[in-house]
Nucleic acid binder design. Structure first.
Length: 140
DNA sequence: CTTCTAATAT
DNA sequence: CATATTAGAA
């Protein structure tokens, strides 16, 4: 599945002990052929095993039973690295300001600014957040 | 149902 | 601090 559809996966969580393929081998394969974080899973926390997994490139090592919280944390880390954080360059901010002025401060609402700016890789939410921060800094 | 916005989380 | 996410209002 991985080899056919890399794009569909963000994260691999693999049991160390598997019927046919050794979890460590999978780890090596994935690490070698694709750029996916792999998390190893096992019922036993033998130091040797854990260290082996880590040194083979595992991002983390989970012990069964896995608590929901751990899973949550890991997922969030993966997401965070995956989607780079939006950054307001000086030019972008300039454009933003122009647009706001053009609309009139009272009529400047995220959707309108967003539509008018017409910038790639930007979302309405990005604009909304920036607008919020902008007003906030203004009232300081 | 979409969008806004204050509050809150990261 | 800057940006992201959420909740509840509009």
């Amino acid at each position: 599945m991985l080899q056919e559809n890399i794009d569909m996966f963000d994260l691999v969580i693999a049991e160390v002990h598997m019927p046919d393929m050794d979890g460590l081998k999978l780890l090596e394969l994935v690490g070698l052929e694709m750029d996916l974080p792999v998390i190893m899973l096992s019922a036993h926390g033998e130091t040797e095993l854990v260290m082996k997994a880590i040194s083979h490139g595992a991002r983390d090592f989970l012990l069964k039973p896995v608590r929901l919280e751990e899973l949550r944390n890991i997922w969030q880390h993966v997401i965070r690295n995956k989607e780079s954080q939006f950054v307001w360059s000086v030019e972008l901010h300039r454009k933003f300001l122009e647009t706001v002025n053009q609309l009139g401060v009272d009529k400047a609402v995220p959707k309108k600014i967003f539509d008018l700016m017409n910038v790639e890789n930007i979302t309405r939410e990005d604009v909304a957040t920036h607008l919020q921060a902008f007003f906030q800094s203004f009232t300081l």
